[in-house]
Design a protein around this nucleic acid. Structure first.
Lengths: 198, 198
DNA sequence: CAATAAAAAAACAGATCTGTACACCCCTTA
DNA sequence: TAAGGGGTGTACAGATCTGTTTTTTTATTG
């Protein structure tokens, strides 16, 4: 039936619904922005690397700023889902469950294109020049804080400890760029244990 | 005597010796790079803001990269001197001396043009595109680590605790951009106390 | 005052960046 | 087969950026 062909549905899809090309653009842009920075990464590179025509890129995202925002929004969503899933799967109880979360930072720091926390990098580049991007970074950090608070509450700790855990978490991501992450993580685990068992 | 006129000395000054204009350029560039980022801040803006002619700028620094490196080198030196002086003047003994260092982060986070840690910002923008800048950021972090180790040793703590303090310190600087720094610092002080008194 | 050297001012060259315009192609649908 | 919509590829416009060149001004020295 023509009323139910894919094409028909496709043309009636709202613009917010993901299309393969839109996702491909977001994937490519996220990877390039993360590795090379936002200002240093040009639209032409994203276009060439993704293989999608420039016209199509600007049909999905009216400007580079809009693309950056879309990348950050989707990345934030993905991080949230990943952390929720990770928290569900975390082995152990009590302190061990929180420690496991920090232990997993090591793998992230050792990935080949690791470059710290995307949201802090964005905040650094757009702190005073692009309020929406800065706000998005702030919202992401706020969510991280609340996530840690929930995790702490589940294990019977005072939720305020999240205010010490989050700087450690972000600090490890930041330092992981230029310092050995393994020993730093190890000693942070000790600090967390001391804090929560006090 | 002409042999000792200022001009004569000036012309024989090695290029590494600071001149008023060179310092003015470094001051302006540091402020603008810190606030607006490295790639986003153009040479023309530094030139206009400093009032020094572009010709003179390129006489002192052969390229933008060289200017960035010079800014980071001088800033690192200044931070080191400031922290050494601060450590000398720190009130209290034992844990209190370390806590005082972290307490001072609050003032930094509340400054009008605060934008985190200059060296982490530089590392984020140049991680894979400019090894010398990345290396300079790494060296600065290494010095910070050794500085904290010295401070801990002076107060009779195990120096390895610095590996937990440094992520916290840098994490607070990073989060200070988008989160209230006061409460985060307060809870980090508690974590440090728990760690060192364990 | 004349000579010289440095700095300022401004124009410019070449590259690059964002964003647009246009012609072409492919594929579906009528 | 004809029409039309979405994607491609390319060329281009305009702005901006780094770095250079050229000219003018300024200040110092003999």
């Amino acid at each position: 039936m023509s009323a139910f062909t894919f094409s028909h549905i496709h043309t009636r899809m709202p613009s917010t619904m993901p299309t393969p090309r839109r996702d491909l653009l977001l994937d490519t842009a996220e990877q390039l922005f993360y590795r090379g920075g936002f200002h240093a990464t040009g639209i032409d590179l994203i276009q060439a690397e993704s293989g999608v025509a420039k016209t199509t890129l600007y049909k999905h995202f009216p400007s580079k700023d809009a693309l950056i925002l879309a990348v950050l929004e989707r990345s934030s969503l993905r991080v949230r889902q990943a952390l929720e899933a990770q928290a569900q799967a975390l082995a152990g109880t009590g302190v061990e469950r929180i420690l496991a979360l920090f232990r997993d930072l090591r793998g992230m720091c050792e990935e080949s294109d690791f470059n710290g926390c995307l949201f802090n990098n964005a905040a650094a580049e757009f702190m005073y020049s692009n309020p929406p991007i800065r706000a998005l970074a702030a919202e992401h950090m706020q969510w991280m804080l609340e996530f840690l608070e929930r995790l702490l509450a589940e294990e019977g700790f005072e939720t305020e400890a999240a205010l010490a855990l989050l700087p450690m978490y972000e600090g490890l991501l930041t330092l992981g760029r230029v310092q050995d992450s393994h020993t730093a993580i190890k000693h942070c685990l000790g600090a967390i244990t001391a804090l929560l068992n006090r």
